[in-house]
Design a protein around this nucleic acid. Sequence first.
DNA 1: CATGAATGAGATTTCATTCAT
DNA 2: AATGAATGAAATCTCATTCAT
Lengths: 204, 204, 204, 204
Amino acid sequence: MKGVRALKKQKAKRQQILDAAVRVIAENGYYRAQVSRIAKEAGVADGTIYLYFNNKEDLLVSLFAETMGSFVERIKVEMHPCTGAEAKLGALVRVHLGHLAERPHLAVLTQLELRQSQATLRSKISKILEPYLSLIEQIVELGIEEHVFHAEIDKKLARQMVFGTIDQVVTSWVMGNMETDLPAQANRIQRMLAGAFRYQNTFV
Amino acid sequence: MKGVRALKKQKAKRQQILDAAVRVIAENGYYRAQVSRIAKEAGVADGTIYLYFNNKEDLLVSLFAETMGSFVERIKVEMHPCTGAEAKLGALVRVHLGHLAERPHLAVLTQLELRQSQATLRSKISKILEPYLSLIEQIVELGIEEHVFHAEIDKKLARQMVFGTIDQVVTSWVMGNMETDLPAQANRIQRMLAGAFRYQNTFV
Amino acid sequence: MKGVRALKKQKAKRQQILDAAVRVIAENGYYRAQVSRIAKEAGVADGTIYLYFNNKEDLLVSLFAETMGSFVERIKVEMHPCTGAEAKLGALVRVHLGHLAERPHLAVLTQLELRQSQATLRSKISKILEPYLSLIEQIVELGIEEHVFHAEIDKKLARQMVFGTIDQVVTSWVMGNMETDLPAQANRIQRMLAGAFRYQNTFV
Amino acid sequence: MKGVRALKKQKAKRQQILDAAVRVIAENGYYRAQVSRIAKEAGVADGTIYLYFNNKEDLLVSLFAETMGSFVERIKVEMHPCTGAEAKLGALVRVHLGHLAERPHLAVLTQLELRQSQATLRSKISKILEPYLSLIEQIVELGIEEHVFHAEIDKKLARQMVFGTIDQVVTSWVMGNMETDLPAQANRIQRMLAGAFRYQNTFV
DNA sequence: CATGAATGAGATTTCATTCAT
DNA sequence: AATGAATGAAATCTCATTCAT
């Protein structure tokens, strides 16, 4: 029978592989990241990877699924005590930037490798991203209920603006070799986004 | 001596290859796009591609450089008659969406394949994108001069918000198989963006 | 000290593995039959197989050796009460077809997998087949002594004809997915074979 | 445009690969024959093989199809001038043995590798073998028409006996390292087979 | 200029076998 | 004696690039 320690060990090995994969894929891109390189980096044999993942694509998808899972979880936790749509939006921006600033490899992954033109991969990735995007939508809805955001805001468009802006800021940061202070931008971004959703005032 | 017709012919062949490359890469992604497939689609021999481009990477980079060139040119032309930063911003959004809506393959390319984690490619692509991004920055500067946008707006951030938002809207459209009316969104986006840059009012 | 029960158990496990191997190899062929699959089918761990057999090849060879052993034994028993070469030949054909008809997996093994071009395997398999072939030769010799078969029959050739014919009939049956009634052919085959060995009469 | 010489060259390369494949597969068996080894033996690069064949299985099947084609052709030619079923049967046996005696590698292939338990391969091989088997059947039918063979002979069984016997004789020869004179057996085999099909006389 | 057959390094994946538990 | 996770060598197949024609 499998003991508790054995189970822990197994879990650890799976995590080792995922960690190594983040690093290697971030450095080389998905296609250029060799499975054998990931194995070496993880300190396991090539074949061991296939005990935990069906194939290379499955490794990438699992990677996203698990990292996004804890990412969304963390945002939810930090958003919870904030009251009001604007404060919640601020928390989301802050955590998003902070989380990736602490994990540069993950940032490369989400900003660059998440974009896959291969149809099968793309649809799987979309599904993983969904919980995060719906989080944004909930904030917008709350803002509308609170009469802080304009009622006729297109929710889907708002979601795209929030995600697109943060995304682009992070991408710039990644491409600029991560030399600036990313979380420091959070406040300004939040204010600009909130401004966008209140834009109608300016037409009065 | 090389006649005019011969020169035209040569140019035509180069363009044929680029056009074929856009299609094939859009359908399969850069790594999965085979040079031989591009050659076939262009109606030339595999080896011919290497008479016009150094290698596959050079083909991709040239593709971006030339398509972005005419893209930026078109935006400049359409922006010129517009007066005021907001109008110019509106023109930029409109042309950006319109241009890609007419060229779905190009959209896939810029939205998905542009994102390369391979360092050498990434820096080359960044350089190509620069003229477009500086166009946005000029609009923001103009807006500030005109006292339409807040003076303390972070120009780089503003640029990232504009690009990021449009980019995300287009990506969603591409990933949703281009079924919605992309240019129809232009107005709403422009208003949201303008709102963001006037955000300070709301703090009064 | 090892008890009787323990010994039985051990024997049982070895037999379990052999039985599983017959099934798995018959379904996939020797090379495509995975050791881990055989282990699973036998209800033992992969490593356990190596406690009973040196390696995969040894497993295959042991399989043949043991199944052929009981096969030859059964033929001898059924042939014993028959008097005369023709009757004995009839018994051999009947038992051969009957035995395999009852054991389709074994039939696949002997008809298809027995044929190995790998030299080391081939010679081992030849040796295992020998007792069966010599059984045929004894019948032919008896027939000649009894003046039922022609004295100048080439014994080796006769042996090849008997074995080759039965073999081909079984192979056809296996390849045709075992849909016909195999033992029903026994009589006709026996008569044709007997006819072949009496062929000289027809030249009179 | 492809010239005659170029075409010839191409054909030659394909044949080189097939010839090398016969040798390598005969020595190692299909599964143990590495594509890279076949390539080296043929004096081409590994990838070149895939310009002429879809995959390893296709190479094996093509091999059988083309060699069996010329084999059947040769038998037909040599059988044609012979009159009477017995003479034709003699020609078939003679050519079959002669052809393989001259091509030991091919003999290994047809006798050993032809037997594949992999279902997809097996059915393809069956189809290739069909013309040869129907040749035998035609002879048996002719013999019955000529009243040389018994009318109630089972044609399918007769076919299996002819093929099985020759097959087993060749297999023995191959396994005995081809040290005996194979074609020398032709006459005796033919007489035994003819005897088998006339077996009814002996019951009068 | 143009061709496209040929190249061969390199990638993913499989699986017989081992060995610490 | 038994386990089964881990190993890593080896195999097939792909495809960017070259070069003789």
